[in-house]
């Protein structure tokens, strides 16, 4: 049992430390031209999308977690 705990601990620490190291992106910055295209924007017109969300939210029981998480293409 003790060995299992130690192994688990070592594996966890290794994984945590590996998360701190730099990651070589599998999609290079120069390969993100399509993702940066305006038609791929998470929210091309915020003033419009927020209004439409409001239309729905005012008439539905559900709320929250609408739209994108705010991520982008990291092209710059």
């Amino acid at each position: 049992m003790t060995t299992t705990i130690k192994l688990s601990l070592a594996l966890t620490v290794t994984l945590l430390l590996s998360a701190c190291s730099s990651v070589d992106p599998w999609v290079k910055p120069y390969e993100r031209e399509r993702l940066a295209d305006i038609i791929m924007a998470a929210d091309r017109n915020p003033v419009s999308s927020s209004y439409l969300h409001h239309v729905f939210e005012a008439r539905e029981g559900a709320r929250g977690a609408v739209g994108s998480a705010g991520g982008g293409c990291g092209c710059n």
């Binding site: 927020s50 969300h53 409001h54 939210e57 994108s68 705010g70 982008g72 990291g74």
Partner: peptide, 13 residues
């Protein structure tokens, strides 16, 4: 919602 919708599309830009 209006506030969050004005969040930047890119964290670094």
């Amino acid at each position: 919602l209006l506030l969050t919708s004005t969040l930047p599309a890119f964290a670094g830009v």
